[in-house]
Nucleic acid binder design. Structure first.
Length: 580
RNA sequence: GCGCCCGUAGCUCAGCAGGAUAGAGCACAGGUUUCCUAAACCUGGGGUCACAGGUUCGAAUCCUGUCGGGCGCGCCA
């Protein structure tokens, strides 16, 4: 039950009725009309801007329209009072009887509380991580991985048909480098002294296992043989093993993507050729020259005629090359084919989670989708994740890529656990930089939001356990009477719960899962406050032995709060703990 | 030079779909426990929402410009 959606509907109905009665113009655009919780609770429970937004087009002074609307709304069910305030807000004070109904419905929904059908089953593709398959994930991949996963969960919970996808860059030069590096480790596994790993190859120890696997599978077949004989099989095995590694890393963060899409397959299947042909037929490809890049011009810049995608026709800044000077396809060309594949699978939203250094890629991806599907047919949404800065007790953690000293995703997850990593990565807007201090995030105090939210959930579980052991387990008929919850502290928690479904939808529409984290923090805060009220005011404690109905009611209330916490944490991919 | 992102309290950040008197936490000062987890709670001060225009009944939020910070700018992926 989404109270605000419900009252939004009532406002629309009232407006239509007014139009039908000839009191105002009909057929108006209602998209700017909102029904929302007022910032100041003294203004009531639901507030709408309808009169202010529509006054002009309705052909009525705002005050007059507000009065008409107020008359209709005051008569609606569950509305106790409707009043005009400020510049023309209509504030609804709801009848106290609505809260028991709301709590009952939230409780009945249980695991589904907060979920909705907003997306109407629209197909959405979320592509995230997509790290090169050349080694384990490092800490830089963490944020995008968690963000993408949480966003996918959020969209799924709000009624979208979500596919979680990983694009494997297994076709470029860097996987050849991987193969050469693995071949060296293969020689090493066969007992050769390989000395220092030459510059330009991947030095990581994680390739030793690949070398051993190659030796076991192929014996000495690839020793002292030209690269042309071994490059392909070695590369295939190395990529397969790297992807296993990456899947394990993701699993450590409780991430499981459904589709792992190979870039190479786009070449072997002919999809890239077909895409180029199709774009050419549509007139989006031409032979031409590009101006040298502004800023730093590359050493080996050469002005030449090349095959270009007319990205500028779709809002990009420059046209984009599809072929390299040796005639082979660019990375961008396979990306175009990949976009085409996604579009052909029926996705209406293509969501990309990328690092902030990929900002320059956004317009290109949008241009591609417009060229292939037609303008406005497919929505391309790119969310850029800013850097994570690691700290240890306030000191920045130094990483040197050159020396191969990077902190892996696994290092971080193993040290603080997946729940902490996931929550902290989502406790900031994605486009804001994030500081991650190992000491702070594991601290057990209210200064640590992960702990604070978890603690609220655990505390609820603890009371429920105590209650059950004292005979307040499953309630019997009529034992739960939510109208007994009348204290301000209780009502403010109930109203916070009532905002949850609307918050989920807003977060989904904005593609901003961090809003869930902040909501959970606020809800936890309300709950802890309510808990402490029981100290000065014993009648507000949850278990009150002399009053069975009240106690049973409060247990049900706690279960509703717990569902909200657990469901929100579920979106973030954080396990709600029952005991701490 | 151009594009994208950011600029809110001393610090770290929220600010919901343009709404009413801009909010949290930290830090600082004080208070609360014979009681369901004090691992918590309560009270207090603190703001030219970078700056200047514009749109609007109404702007931290949308538009334009300026300043400051980050990222990026063909044949790498």
């Amino acid at each position: 039950m989404n109270l605000f959606a419900h009252f939004h509907g009532l406002v629309e109905k009232a407006l239509n009725d007014l139009a039908a009665e000839g009191l105002m113009a009909g057929g108006l655009d209602l998209s700017r009309v909102v029904a929302e919780p007022p910032r100041d609770p003294s203004h009531g429970d639901v507030s709408t801007n309808a009169a202010m937004v529509l006054a002009k087009v309705a052909g009525l002074p705002p005050r007059k329209l507000a009065e008409l609307l107020c008359g209709k709304l005051a008569a609606a069910q569950d509305v106790e009072a409707a009043e005009i305030a400020g510049p023309g807000f209509i504030n609804l004070r709801l009848a106290p009887t609505i809260w028991p109904k709301f709590l009952a419905s939230a409780l009945a929904l249980g695991d589904g509380f907060g979920h909705s059908t907003l997306g109407k089953g629209e197909k959405v593709n979320v592509e995230y991580v997509s790290a090169n398959p050349t080694g384990p994930l490092h800490v830089g991949h963490c944020r995008g991985a968690v963000f993408g996963d949480a966003l996918a969960s959020l969209l799924a919970a709000t009624g979208y048909a979500v596919s979680k996808e990983y694009y494997i860059n297994d076709a470029g030069a860097q996987v050849d480098t991987l193969a050469r590096s693995a071949h060296l480790r293969y020689l090493e596994a066969l007992g050769q002294n390989i000395g220092e790993i030459p510059a330009g190859l991947y030095p990581g120890d994680y390739l030793k296992a690949v070398g051993q696997a190659l030796a076991a599978a192929h014996g000495t077949k690839f020793v002292n043989r030209p690269e042309s004989e071994w490059l392909e099989p070695v590369r295939a095995m190395a990529i397969a093993m790297m992807m296993d590694l990456i899947r394990d890393d993701l699993a450590a963060l409780n991430i499981r993507q459904e589709v792992f899409f190979s870039e190479k397959s786009l070449h072997t299947s002919g999809a890239v050729d077909e895409t180029l042909a199709s774009l050419t037929r549509a007139g989006h490809v031409y032979q031409g020259r590009l101006d040298p890049p502004k800023g730093e011009v590359p050493e080996d810049w050469e002005d030449r005629e090349q095959t270009l995608f007319r990205a500028t026709a779709f809002g990009d800044d420059v046209d984009r090359p599809l072929k390299k000077s040796d005639g082979s396809f660019t990375y961008f060309a396979s990306d175009v084919a990949y976009s085409r594949d996604k579009i052909s699978r029926g996705f209406k939203q293509l969501i990309y989670i990328l690092g902030a250094d990929h900002g320059g890629y956004v317009k290109r991806l949008q241009a591609v989708a417009s060229a292939i599907a037609g303008e406005g047919r497919v929505q391309v949404i790119v969310r850029l994740c800013q850097l994570v800065k690691l700290f240890r007790n306030g000191e920045p953690v130094r990483m040197s890529k050159r020396a191969g000293e990077f902190v892996t995703l696994r290092d971080v997850v193993d040290e603080v656990g997946p729940d902490v990593v996931r929550f902290m990565m989502l406790y900031r807007k994605n486009e804001a930089p994030l500081d991650f201090d190992f000491a702070k995030v594991t601290e057990q105090s209210k200064d640590n939001p992960v702990f604070y939210v978890q603690y609220a959930h655990a505390r609820i579980c603890s009371v429920l356990r105590n209650a059950e052991s004292e005979g307040y387990g499953a309630p019997g008929d009529g034992e739960v009477q939510f109208n007994l919850l009348t204290d301000e502290a209780e009502l403010s928690v109930i109203k916070r719960l009532a905002a949850f479904p609307r918050l989920m939808e807003a977060a989904a529409l904005a593609h901003e899962p961090h809003r869930i984290s902040f909501y959970l923090y606020d809800l936890a805060s309300d709950f802890h406050a309510l808990w402490n009220r029981g100290k000065e005011a014993p009648h507000l404690r949850f278990i009150i032995p002399a009053q069975r109905h009240l106690t049973m009611t409060r247990m049900a209330f706690l279960r509703a709060i717990r569902y909200s916490l657990a469901n929100g944490l579920g979106i973030l991919g954080v396990r709600p703990v029952e005991e701490m």
